[in-house]
């Protein structure tokens, strides 16, 4: 027998940590997906695809802006001391990933707005006619457009990586304490973004390209999962227990069915058949990828809080 009894009963801490609820996974998902969308839109600008009139790179930044703002609103809802939120921007804490993230978000918005200004939608021009003039000036400078593309890729990479680093630096939660988490979240974000662009792209070649790219991201995501579990399973006991939470423990059904099965493997098979012209492209696979990415964040945040060190003196 080995029994530990505690009189502590703090809300959302005991019996298991559940401090972060739906807001954080939603923010991490939207942040990751926007990061992926910025990298894709930035790549399109960098590679000159924006010269095509129906390039998705002109609609992605505005959607990104909306999604990121929704994500940040979710983050704001999570704060317990809301009137003090401005304190994030009166300091820079070098060792705090959350402080880095707050300032990265400040960089992301101008990069997205610069991308929008290259070719604003007619709806925007009708409201602010001056935008047309600004867009005209930007379009005369191809190097500027390339640089906006590079900035979007760079800040997208930073944003996507940060969503994983935020959790992985919290060493007290063994499941998160893996340096591969940022790679997982970045690839998952890219995958969800590719799925989204594949869904909405009006240019057929672009849609096909993104379906192929998404297949690549999904394969890499599976590989990162394998590497992450190898790392955790060959680490200390709390890390092994944390990995087993997903592999065969309390979170196994949702992890295998919704994250791996419906979020990666099945859409990967459907999209592989589609890009090889065995079946038609349908919205089913990309929607499964996007929903799978969202469920992944919920599972990682919830199971991560469940995972813990063992405060036992007798072993």
């Amino acid at each position: 027998m080995h029994e530990i009894f505690t009189t502590r009963n703090n809300p959302y801490v005991d019996p298991i940590m559940a401090m972060w609820e739906w807001q954080i996974p939603v923010y991490l998902f939207l942040g990751g997906m926007v990061a992926g969308m910025m990298i894709i839109a930035g790549y399109f600008l960098f590679s000159g695809r924006h010269k095509e009139s129906n390039c998705a790179c002109f609609s992605i930044p505005f959607t990104s802006l909306i999604l990121l703002s929704l994500g940040m609103f979710a983050l704001f809802l999570d704060l317990a001391h809301k009137p003090y939120v401005w304190r994030l921007y009166t300091t820079f804490q070098l060792k705090s990933p959350m402080s880095w993230g707050a300032w990265i978000l400040i960089l992301v918005y101008p990069a997205l707005i610069a991308n929008i200004l290259i070719r604003p939608s007619q709806w925007m021009i009708n409201r602010v006619p001056k935008l047309s003039e600004i867009a005209g000036k930007i379009q005369q400078h191809h190097i500027l457009i390339r640089n906006i593309g590079i900035l979007n890729m760079l800040f997208g990479l930073m944003l996507g990586a940060y969503t994983g680093v935020l959790l992985s630096t919290l060493g007290s939660r063994p499941l998160w304490n893996t340096s591969l988490l940022w790679v997982l979240f970045l690839v998952s974000g890219l995958s969800a973004a590719a799925a989204y662009v594949h869904l909405v792209a009006k240019n057929k070649a672009e849609s096909e390209l993104l379906a192929k790219a998404d297949n690549g991201f999904l394969v890499v995501e599976l590989f990162v999962f394998v590497m992450m579990f190898l790392g955790l399973l060959s680490s200390a006991k709390p890390h092994i227990e944390a990995a087993n939470l997903l592999l065969n423990g309390a979170y196994a059904p949702i992890f295998w069915v919704f994250v791996i099965g419906m979020g990666i493997v099945i859409p990967l098979i459907i999209q592989l058949l589609a890009v090889n012209h065995k079946v038609k492209h349908t919205p089913i696979a990309p929607i499964m990828v996007i929903v799978g990415g969202l469920i992944l964040r919920f599972v990682i945040v919830s199971a991560g809080q469940y995972s813990h060190w063992f405060n036992a003196h007798f072993h």
Partner: peptide
């Protein structure tokens, strides 16, 4: 403190 809960985690 903004109540972000990172320290709790």
């Amino acid at each position: 403190c903004i109540g972000c809960k990172a320290c709790v985690e």
